Amino acid sequence: MSIVLEVRGDYIQLDQLLKTTGLCHSGGFAHAEIEAGRVTVDGVVESRKRAKLRPGQSVGYAGEVVELVAEHAT
């Protein structure tokens, strides 16, 4: 399944994205999942909790894919 997320501003941090989409229930849980290597950005495991993600990128976690788009682009 794919989730489309509008990015307000230039970027969203990876931990914030996981919370905003509801894929992780808290920031602490998001950090643990990122540290455990369970999150990918553009198909590559991402270990930076506060990685800056921009429109055009995609995040994979728990069988879900989040596609980032610019605000008002949907």
Rank of each mutant, 00 (worst) to 15 (best):
V66W: 09
E35L: 12
C24H: 06
L5Y: 15
R8K: 12
R54L: 04
Y61K: 13
Y11D: 12
A73H: 15
A70S: 15
G60M: 07
T40Y: 01
Q13E: 15
V66P: 02
L53I: 03
I3W: 10
D15N: 00
D10P: 12
K52E: 13
V59I: 00
Y11L: 03
S47M: 11
H31L: 03
A51G: 04
H72S: 10
S2M: 09
G60Y: 01
F29Q: 13
T20D: 12
A62K: 08
Y11N: 10
K49W: 13
H31Y: 15
E6L: 00
V69E: 13
I34W: 15
E35Y: 10
R8S: 04
V59G: 08
G43E: 03
P55Q: 07
G43F: 00
L18D: 01
G60A: 07
T74E: 15
E71C: 10
V41I: 09
E33P: 04
E64I: 07
M1D: 09
L68W: 07
D10S: 13
G27E: 02
H31W: 08
E64S: 13
E64F: 15
V59N: 02
L68H: 03
L18V: 08
K19R: 05
H72E: 15
V4A: 07
R8I: 09
L68Y: 04
V44A: 11
G28T: 11
A70K: 15
I12A: 09
L53T: 00
G60E: 03
G56I: 14
V45M: 05
S58K: 14
I12M: 06
L14A: 00
V69T: 10
G22M: 14
E71S: 09
V59F: 12
V69S: 00
D42T: 02
Y61C: 09
D10K: 13
R48F: 06
L68T: 05
R54P: 02
L5G: 11
L5A: 01
E46I: 06
L5E: 11
V7M: 05
Y11M: 06
D10A: 06
G60W: 00
V65D: 02
A70T: 10
Q57V: 01
Q57W: 06
V69Y: 05
Q16E: 12
H72F: 13
S26G: 11
A51E: 15
S2I: 05
H31V: 11
V7L: 04
V4R: 03
R48N: 04
T74F: 11
A36C: 10
Y11I: 00
K52P: 02
L68A: 02
V44S: 05
V66Q: 07
Q13I: 14
G28P: 12
A51I: 09
L17K: 01
S47G: 08
G28I: 06
I12D: 08
M1E: 10
C24M: 09
V66G: 03
T20M: 09
S26M: 00
L68I: 03
E33V: 12
L23H: 10
G9I: 06
L23I: 07
D10N: 14
K19V: 04
V69L: 14
F29H: 14
S58P: 11
A62V: 01
L23Q: 03
T20L: 11
E67T: 12
E64W: 09
A51C: 07
A30V: 02
V41M: 04
